[in-house]
Amino acid sequence: MANKISDEVIEYVSILAKLELTEQEKKDAKADMEKMLDYIDTLNELDTDGIEPVSHVFPVHNVFRDDIVLNGDGSGDTLANAPLEKDNSFKVPKTIG
């Protein structure tokens, strides 16, 4: 069955993805996604009932370690990469109204 992606879904997904797409990009994204989902739907041929989803190939679960600081203060170097900085902090647009 061919997948149909609505304009609303593209809008919603671009909000989740934090992307601002042009009209052309939205059209392309729709076509690309429909095509990929049709292809991904071939997975439905497989019977996966009773199969546990595997996110990690090895049976490792929580890996704990003590929280010991091993690196020094790198704030100067870190801020050197900031697009904008002020008073030893990252400068961003106003976030609270």
Binding site: L37, I40, N44, L46, T48, E52, P53, V54
Partner: peptide
């Protein structure tokens, strides 16, 4: 989609 893919990965 996502869980289906992870089950396929197991297989």
């Amino acid at each position: 989609y996502y869980l289906k893919a992870l089950r396929t990965k197991a297989l």
